[in-house]
């Protein structure tokens, strides 16, 4: 099963709502947000993509659909890698923890750093930043040298002191 035939089958299954392309040696599938979860489920159950490698959230403040998720899936038997891309107007999407357990950590990380909420995730907490951190550092509006949060921590007297 190559990427072309997979794409053809998926297009037949989902009424041609999805499309795909190959760029710089990687295979991408665009799926609309309302059927994306079904596409992901079908890829695992019907096409053997049992290994969820990674989830990437991207912030596009200048586009209409301001957020984008990219699911990196691998079929271990057929050695095929595809990326399922989902464009989102709001930073909110359904969880895939019920399909792949690795999504637990991966979704928590994207929630923490980019601020995409995954509905139905069993334990959606911050993972890399401290629990009392405010904001999402990988959003484009968050400046590289933004110290406002560190300064406000001093005022809140949380017992942690940061030097400026």
């Amino acid at each position: 099963m190559g990427f072309e035939s997979l794409l053809k089958e998926l297009a037949g299954k989902f009424d041609s709502k999805i499309n795909g392309y190959t760029q710089y040696g990687c295979n991408f599938i665009n799926a609309p947000a309302d059927i994306a979860k079904e596409v992901l489920k079908s890829l695992k159950c019907d096409y053997g993509f049992t290994y969820l490698v990674d989830i990437v959230a991207i912030h596009w403040p200048k586009k209409n659909e301001k957020f984008e998720l990219s699911y990196n899936l691998f079929n271990v038997d057929k050695k095929l890698r595809v990326f399922v891309k989902v464009a989102l107007a709001e930073p909110e999407f359904e969880t895939v923890t019920d399909i792949w357990k690795s999504a637990d950590f991966l979704e928590r990380e994207q929630y923490d750093l980019v601020g995409v909420t995954f509905k139905g995730h069993p334990d959606l907490r911050r993972i890399l930043m401290p629990d009392f951190f405010e904001g999402h550092p990988l959003r484009k509006e968050y400046g590289l040298k933004d110290r406002s949060w560190f300064n406000s921590v001093d005022e809140q007297n949380l017992g942690i002191k940061f030097t400026k």
């Binding site: 490698v53 890698r81 990326f83």
Partner: peptide, 15 residues
């Protein structure tokens, strides 16, 4: 555009 590359690092798949 977008691209992804990965290597078999000692710990596993590093991408």
């Amino acid at each position: 555009g977008e691209t992804y590359a990965c290597v078999e690092a000692p710990k596993g798949e590093l991408g």
